[in-house]
Design a protein around this nucleic acid. Structure first.
Lengths: 223, 223
DNA sequence: AGATGTGAAATTCTTCACAGCG
DNA sequence: CGCTGTGAAGAATTTCACATCT
């Protein structure tokens, strides 16, 4: 079979799990490229990602890419294929609401990232932060949210405000046309049907690990 | 049927998904308690957590707690039941490795938490941080890791160091007897069978939401 | 009537296993 | 041969549906 793209990509539905793995594959493929590796086998990718070889092959199959049985996958080609799938051309960046400790850490984390993951504006109620540039990102007062997003719309936002304020912020963001939210506040956000919301709950993550670590029985997960 | 604890709890295996939901229920029940609510129905908990009523009932059933058809669940009782399950008495706290932007945000986030989630010590290669107290947590040089953990063992650690350093840190932590790791570095950690590792990958989370937000077809998730 | 507790169905996700290619 | 591509089996998780209780 011909290596590279296959037909059939375009209108299939990838599960969230699959998308997460694809993001990880893409990053790993980037590392491999830097190391000068130009071919990779499914079991190698699997080892670096914490999945099985069969899982990797299925994921790759789902997005319509093909490797060669003899040489595995083309690193650059697969990376590019995944990238073009994950980053449709319409993306313009991300805004952040809440420039407390966590918000600043997020700004630092994503500072200097390329287009789709770059933070283009940050907002906070603390008027002292207005006008400052933190980790390369311009800060605005929260009251400027609608104006700035009207001028420079972005499809995705991160919320790093206290729990009590999060729903209000989410409402204003979705009213501005934001379609995806990464929520770090420890509350469930109610958003319109057509908006995606991913909750990252640090307390829950820590408590879960704490429980699993202390419970004698845990079925080995990674490695 | 009698309300409250039922027999059969103790030696069943809860799925990770279930544990995450239980953590969330516990926090929500805490909020409800503060609001003076002393009874709650499964569909109310479900609405606040983003699950279905059936899911809530099954989770509660799995941990061996019982409500009453007429009045729902006892808020305080259920909260206490979940808490005693999630926090076995042997837990002693958490250590943090990596006191960069993200590490400091984590210290701030968990500052003032009760026993099992409190950060008892932080470590960093930057010798300038040694001896300082950041958000109430004492910082040590990374070379002191073994000594401090030997003196004051903790079962759980968070890793917030650059990707290149993460595996080395994980090795040292597991050698010290750490059994659970929350990893914020964007690499898969190889840990022994009996160690749990939860990866929180901010890039992946953001990319995923970005993709889902921009793809026209997304099956409604939350709400 | 409306809620819980729970077996059973349905759905989703992962692994197996093997044909086929280089 | 070992590896990919993939149908089919298997596991895990969620939802349905209804008996039961108050």
């Amino acid at each position: 079979m011909l290596e590279g793209q296959r037909q059939g990509d375009g209108a299939m539905e990838l599960s969230e799990r699959t998308i997460e793995r694809l993001c990880a594959y893409r990053r790993i493929l980037g590392h491999l490229l830097k190391e000068g590796k130009d071919r990779v086998f499914s079991h190698e990718l699997a080892a670096q990602q914490g999945a099985t070889a069969a899982q990797v092959r299925r994921d790759v199959m789902l997005i319509g890419y093909a490797g060669s049985p003899a040489k595995g996958y083309d690193v650059a080609g697969l990376r590019e294929h995944i990238a073009s799938l994950l980053h449709p051309p319409l993306e313009r960046g991300v805004v952040l609401v809440g420039v407390g400790h966590l918000g600043r850490a997020l700004l630092a984390y994503f500072a200097g990232r390329r287009a789709p993951l770059g933070v283009t504006a940050a907002f906070d109620t603390d008027s002292e932060k207005r006008g400052r540039i933190i980790h390369g990102c311009r800060c605005y007062g929260l009251e400027e949210l609608e104006e700035v997003l009207g001028r420079q719309w972005t499809p995705v936002a991160m919320i790093a405000v206290p729990g009590e304020a999060a729903q209000g912020v989410a409402d204003r963001l979705t009213a501005c046309g934001v379609k995806g939210i990464v929520n770090f506040a420890p509350v469930l956000l109610h958003v319109p049907e057509d908006v995606v919301c991913e909750d990252i709950d640090l307390s829950v993550a820590l408590e879960k690990v704490s429980y699993l670590a202390c419970s004698k029985v845990h079925y080995g997960k990674a490695n």
